[in-house]
Design a binder for these strands. Structure first.
Length: 972
DNA sequence: GGTCTGTGTCATACC
DNA sequence: GAGGTATGACACAGA
């Protein structure tokens, strides 16, 4: 309760300063003040007393020169919040208020009515002068404004005198002359030097407490928080207001002093060292009673450097020498680190900070007339910090955290609320009815709060040895809803939840959080054809907007484009996808359809399916110009290339789509791809056998048979093309079919008629499949009139086509190799040998044929290999991104856990102090924190272990008197 | 003219 | 061992 008083006085003091500065009538403000600050907990006997008390205190600043009030206020605030030792200095500054504390306590304990004169006495040793010597500057006040000092002097003087005497009679230690003297001048003179005098006073007090402050390891921590104490005005020492206080005398005071100082010391020595943050908002007694988280707090899970190192390490435990960033840069993920990792967290912080700042600012600037508030906020950065009290809750701001340490939550909240109150107050400065706080219409004021407080106090006082818990401070005010560390944790949790929940749509954090949906989209898009087809741009946008930004930039034109193309082609592999095909596929398909050869759906499907391979299709697309120019297609190389591509496509598709595409996609993005799904439908038959089967099947089926075979989507197309061309062209007629067909269903077929070699080749494919023994010279003649138009075009381009001949094709032409290069390359071995056996080939020819076949095979293999590499890179990039996202999630979780740990630490520290301070030796004295510490044994008992006792498991072995406390009481 | 990219080819290893 | 495949390395052409 006294702590509340302390805060209360602190609040009042500043509030009074503000009121004085604003020329407000303290008398009219009193009720408002009481309700605003919620001093119901301060109600000793009845509310009216506090009114008077407030009145008295409020008048104190009136002795300050009004001209200096502003600067004084700033200095005061600065002293309060700037210095890390603000608490100690604050105590010094407010020693006069502490005097009031002492007086109030004395009065309260004495059982007599609390009266106004007591505090007045503490404020000034020369009340007469206070009353009779109003500050000259007060004359500058508006004559309409009430003269507060006059009121005080008129009414209070007598009371002061009487109570002074009463205090003396009751044994209350009067204000030390020096203490009074250091207040009196400030109050009396009201000169321009008041600021300096305040400083001097601080210095004086500082010298008096130098001994004490130097022992504070963390002075910002108020060791007296939550303790009933008074300030010995003679010695300046803090006197614990316990039942043994008077008995112990100065020894007790010193004991308490040490104890309180050790409140942080003990914690420092405790596994929770460093946790001296005395956040009053945390002290919810009920929560404390359910918590003794030493194990948790001492656990190294969160604090382990392993985790930190792991999280901070971008290498992700990659092998030595592996530069992830370099690798990421290669795949375009490098910059994502800087854009998503740090900025993300930073943005998250900043967003909260900005929101809180905006909130505070809005609350402050709600009244434009609050000049003081503005100057406060603008001129004094500390004040600005003070205004941003909600930021203290944010764990991401170390300075805020530290600030939080030296600024109790209640106080912080009070400051903010005070501003708001003042803002509201200034809106109706002259309003007669101030007793209902305009800004808090629903605020109950004394009654409820008081009763609440009383209830808790009574409960707590059941244990006479227990000091009033710090935590019940919050019970009387709504502040605990705002400033508690639990709220801190919850706020963070809320923040986390918000950020998590808003990840897909978050603006700031979205940059990082969107990545997960993006991942989902990205990884899961292949599960749907429609998505693949329609979300190409969507994916790109997502990727661009998020973590994949750079990756997308790096890959969208390459890898992803290929992938999209792959998907697109794959999507077009269906019956309806023919229109989407372009280049060779489209040409072939349209040609086929244009020829009216409606028996080619399978063919079209095959070709499309054959082109479904991304790498091949892209390459095939690139080949389109060459294919379309006819010259390239005209020669055997054309057919060779086409079939090579087709073969490659088919080969790759048939072999890798299942075995590679699905298996290599580590990230699983292709797991559900239609391609793989389609591929899965394919029986895992050996490709070579499959191809052979296909070819033989067509051969066996004859010209008309391929339709059925080609209609099967999984049928290899390597030779289907030739087969269907035969079948499509003219079943049963090797020459009248695709080759000589007027419509020329296939480009190569159309062009193949014009050139002898090509004719042989094209005719070969048709003839040989059917008759197995048709010279490639025949097709030209046998092509008949149907082939003439085409052959004319081909002849025109003949010279051009020769330029596009591959080396092998040229060599083959030079050596008059009777077998088309395409066949040389793509024919199965047995058939290839069969073909070879049909010709009487020279050694050079045979060698060339075998080299051509080898190179052709190798070329396809190289293409497949490259595509495989590309896909592997993409997969790795996806994995890297996934890992990065996971890392970010873990970092966020870790931050959250750290915040939670800090919150629990705070609770524990308070609990520790609470329990330790409640312990009494047989004589009723408190244990010295320097000498004892609370530790928990393995069996759960809380032990009071001497500090020189390092082993907590054998506390009784020491010379000191370790005490085992039952858990129900002390584990709380 | 240098660089980059795509492609073909060779050599090699492996199946 | 032959054939096919995979892959690194190199060369070349084109942008």
């Amino acid at each position: 309760m006294l702590c509340i008083k302390k805060l209360y006085h602190e609040e009042l003091f500043q509030l009074a300063l503000l009121l004085s500065l604003l020329r407000l009538d303290p008398e009219s403000y009193l009720g408002l003040d009481i309700q605003t600050i919620g001093v119901g907990s301060l109600d000793l006997n009845n509310g009216s007393r506090w009114h008077t008390d407030v009145h008295t205190i409020v008048h104190r600043p009136m002795f300050v020169h009004p001209k200096n009030l502003d600067s004084m206020l700033l200095n005061y605030e600065r002293d309060l919040f700037e210095d890390l030792n603000s608490l100690g200095r604050y105590n010094r500054i407010n020693s006069g208020l502490n005097d009031i504390h002492a007086y109030l306590l004395n009065v309260e304990e004495s059982g007599r009515d609390f009266d106004i004169a007591g505090p007045s006495i503490s404020l000034s040793t020369d009340p007469t002068r206070n009353m009779t010597s109003p500050d000259p500057s007060n004359s500058s006040q508006s004559p309409d404004e009430p003269t507060n000092t006059a009121e005080l002097t008129q009414e209070d003087m007598d009371l002061i005198e009487v109570l002074w005497k009463q205090d003396v009679d009751l044994g209350f230690t009067l204000v030390e002359p020096t203490t009074a003297a250091k207040k009196a001048p400030t109050v009396e003179k009201g000169s321009d030097d008041e600021i300096e005098k305040l400083k001097a006073l601080e210095a004086i007090n500082g010298s008096n407490e130098k001994k004490d402050t130097k022992e504070y390891e963390e002075p910002q921590d108020d060791p007296w928080a939550g303790l009933p104490y008074t300030v010995d005005l003679e010695t300046g020492e803090y006197i614990l207001n316990s039942g043994s206080r008077r008995e112990n005398g100065n020894n007790g005071v010193e004991e308490d002093d040490h104890l309180l100082r050790d409140a942080s010391l003990g914690l420092d020595n405790h596994p929770l060292a460093g946790l001296t943050d005395d956040s009053l908002g945390l002290t919810d007694t009920l929560e404390l009673e359910n918590d003794f988280p030493s194990d948790l707090l001492g656990g190294g899970l969160l604090g382990s450097t392993n985790v930190e190192g792991l999280l901070n390490n971008d290498s992700l435990d990659l092998p030595d020498g592996f530069n992830l960033e370099e690798a990421l840069q290669l795949v375009g993920l490098d910059e994502a680190q800087s854009e998503e990792t740090k900025p993300e967290v930073k943005k998250e912080k900043d967003s909260i900070e900005e929101s809180t700042s905006a909130k505070d600012e809005s609350g402050i600037t709600s009244s434009s007339s609050v000049e003081v508030a503005k100057s406060f906020r603008c001129e004094d950065p500390k004040s600005s910090d003070m205004i941003h009290t909600p930021q203290f809750h944010h764990p991401h701001h170390p300075h805020h955290r530290s600030f939080q340490g030296r600024m109790p939550f209640m106080r912080a909240m009070s400051m903010e609320q005070r501003w708001q109150d003042l803002a509201s107050l200034l809106s109706l400065p002259g309003a007669p009815d101030h007793f209902a706080h305009p800004a808090h219409p629903g605020y109950p004021g004394h009654g409820i709060s008081h009763s609440h407080y009383e209830a808790q106090r009574n409960v707590l006082l059941h244990n006479a040895t227990l000091a009033p818990p710090v935590g019940d401070l919050n019970s009387t005010s709504p502040y605990h809803n705002v400033g508690g560390s639990s709220n801190l944790g919850s706020a963070v949790a809320t923040s986390m939840n918000l950020t998590n929940s808003s990840e897909p749509m978050g603006a700031e954090s979205g940059a990082a959080y969107k990545s997960e949906p993006a991942d989902m989209m990205y990884y899961h898009t292949p599960t749907s054809d429609s998505i693949n087809q329609t979300t190409d741009g969507f994916l790109s946008s997502l990727l661009n907007d998020e973590d994949l930004h750079l990756m997308d930039m790096a890959m969208n034109d390459g890898m992803y484009t290929m992938r999209m193309l792959d998907n697109g082609n794959n999507n077009t592999s269906g019956p309806t996808g023919a229109a989407a095909l372009s280049g060779v596929q489209t040409a072939g398909g349209t040609t086929s359809s244009a020829t009216g050869v409606t028996t080619l759906p399978g063919v079209t499907d095959e070709r499309m399916d054959a082109s479904s391979d991304s790498a091949v299709s892209s390459m095939g697309s690139e080949r389109v110009p060459s294919l379309s120019d006819g010259e390239w297609m005209e020669t055997g190389s054309n057919s060779s290339h086409t079939q090579a591509d087709s073969h490659y496509t088919m080969d790759y598709a048939s072999k890798y789509r299942m075995s590679y595409d699905c298996s290599y996609s580590v990230s699983g993005r292709n797991a559900g791809s239609p391609r793989c799904q389609t591929e899965r439908t394919m029986p895992p038959v050996a490709q070579k056998k499959h191809q052979m089967f296909a070819k033989r099947y067509f051969q066996e089926q004859g010209t008309g048979s391929p339709l059925g075979a080609t209609a099967h989507p999984t049928t290899p197309m390597k030779y289907d093309y030739d087969s269907h061309t035969v079948g499509a062209g003219a079943p049963g007629n090797a020459y009248s079919g695709p080759i000589e067909g007027a419509a020329g269903p296939q480009p190569e077929i159309k062009y193949s008629c014009s050139v002898d070699f090509t004719r042989h080749q094209s005719g070969r494919s048709a003839v040989e499949h059917v008759h197995h023994n048709h010279t490639y010279h025949m097709p030209a003649e046998s092509s008949g009139s149907l082939q003439r138009p085409v052959s004319r075009d081909k002849k025109v381009r003949k010279s051009e086509s020769e330029e596009h001949l591959t080396r092998d094709e040229k060599r083959a032409r030079a050596l008059n190799v009777p077998i088309p290069v395409n066949d040389i390359i793509n024919l199965p071995m047995d058939e290839f040998n069969e073909r070879l056996s049909k010709y009487d080939l020279s050694e050079a020819q045979l060698s060339l044929i075998r080299d051509i076949r080898r190179r052709g095979k190798n070329k396809v293999a190289a293409q497949n290999c490259r595509k495989r590499k590309l896909d592997q890179i993409i997969s790795l990039a996806d994995e890297v991104k996934e890992m990065r996202d996971r890392k970010m999630r873990l970092i966020r979780e870790r931050e959250f856990m750290l915040i939670e740990r800090q919150r629990v630490k705070d609770k524990f520290s308070q609990l520790y102090r609470h329990v330790f301070q409640s312990l009494r030796d047989p004589d009723g004295n408190q244990y010295h924190p320097y000498e004892y510490s609370l530790q928990q044994s393995a069996d759960g008992n809380v032990l009071l272990v001497p500090r020189n006792q390092t082993n907590p498991h054998h506390p009784r072995s020491t010379a000191m008197e370790p005490k085992t406390k039952p858990d129900p009481e002390h584990k709380e």
